[in-house]
Simulated scan of single mutants.
Amino acid sequence: MALGASGTMPVGWNEAVPPNGFHNRDRHKASESNDNPLGLATPVGDVDIETTPEHRNLVAGDPRCATWTRRYDDPNVVALRDRLAERNGIAGLEVVDPGDVERATAIFHRDGFVAVADALQTEQLEQLRRGVDEVIAALVAADPEGAVGGGAGGLPHRYSFGGTSVSRHMFHRPEWAQLIDLPTTTPILTSIFASPDYIVYGCGGDLALPGAIEYQGLHSDTVWSEIHDPQGGLTMRDLPTPVIAVNFPTIDLTPINGPIRIIPGTHRSNAAIPTLADEPEWMRLSTVCPLQAGSAIIRDARCWHSGTPNLSRDVRAMPGVEYMAPWFRSEALIRSMSYDTWSKLSPHAQRISRYIVCDKGEAVIGEGINHPRRVERERIHAQQLAALSPQAATAYQRRT
């Protein structure tokens, strides 16, 4: 067992949970690449994994650890931990100061992401940690083995905060809502988008329990379907940044505790995303570490990225917020914020949240409930929807 985000909750390292979560995953062939142009429209595959809709194509798991045991002292785990401690991390990673907006913008456009130090004040970070621990407690209570999995690829010992929320987002938690408009990140977002007229649409992030021994497959967060160009000359990769995700690690990211990996420059690449079996080793080591807790990782959603093994004894949590460019919209934009939450936001946060806020007095279906199993989330959603009047239920469904 290991500690939660604030060092108080024992979770993880359950050797009873097999690698990749499904005994039969290795019988399901991976696609030729991890590209997913269908995005949110991706159907549930032959293996019904617990994952976010845009990542339902990632069903192959990690072939390298298929015969390992999920134990801290498993010889294969120990060998990987030693190798990561020695070699993991992007060489020369530049972490910028929040006030250096011009440099942050230049790095973002060059690499597809930028790491920003001291994005959160001490009080904000502590508040976020408390919220994270409460959500983790709910997930662990429903899945004490850590076997259900979630996020990109449905791997065990990993969860998506937004993906496990019945409302599909975490806007109802003040710990997350505080992240929408920060004096440290808003100027950088405004500079990257070259406008203050971007909008917020998503609120979630992810966590990796200790003992998450698998790599996730590289992927883009494709919260859209590929654009239709009759002449076949234009893709989403050819456009300016459509979506930005900002993640805030709640503990220091180290080589061994599951730092996010990002492949620089791939936000504008039309190359096929390689599978875990085909990617070169340097891609597995292209992680954003070391990085202090309370920093921000601002990334183009198209940039190839994934989770990495958490071989430590601590939970690695990275809550986050997602934004759409002023010119971009998709089916990912749903009403998922209560009017009460919206009324407490800053004027800028209120303005950029205008497409996701519900009417005054209108309930947000599923608000405040996180559960790792999709079937249970759908049951709760249907139950709460049925409790509304027929007119209110119809109106709600039309707007979400």
Score class of each variant (00 low, 15 high):
A117M: 08
A117E: 12
D118Y: 12
D118A: 15
A119Y: 01
A119H: 00
L120D: 01
T122C: 06
E123G: 06
Q124L: 13
Q127P: 10
D133N: 13
D133W: 01
V135G: 01
V135L: 10
A138N: 09
A138M: 11
V140M: 07
V140R: 08
A141R: 13
A141T: 13
E145H: 12
G146M: 05
G146P: 05
V148D: 01
V148C: 04
G149R: 10
G154P: 11
L155T: 00
P156Q: 12
H157C: 14
R158T: 04
F161A: 07
F161E: 05
G162T: 03
V166F: 09
V166I: 13
R168E: 15
R173K: 11
R173P: 05
P174T: 12
E175T: 11
E175S: 08
L179W: 09
D181G: 05
L182P: 02
P183A: 13
P183E: 15
T185Q: 00
T186W: 03
T186S: 15
P187V: 13
S191N: 08
S191E: 07
F193R: 00
A194Q: 14
S195L: 06
S195I: 08
S195Q: 06
S195R: 05
Y198L: 04
V200A: 15
Y201F: 14
Y201I: 11
G202H: 00
C203G: 14
C203Y: 03
C203K: 02
G204Q: 06
G204H: 03
P210C: 13
A212F: 03
A212V: 05
E214A: 13
E214N: 14
Y215G: 07
L218Y: 01
S220C: 09
S220A: 14
D221E: 14
W224T: 09
E226W: 10
E226R: 08
E226I: 09
D229F: 10
P230T: 07
G232E: 11
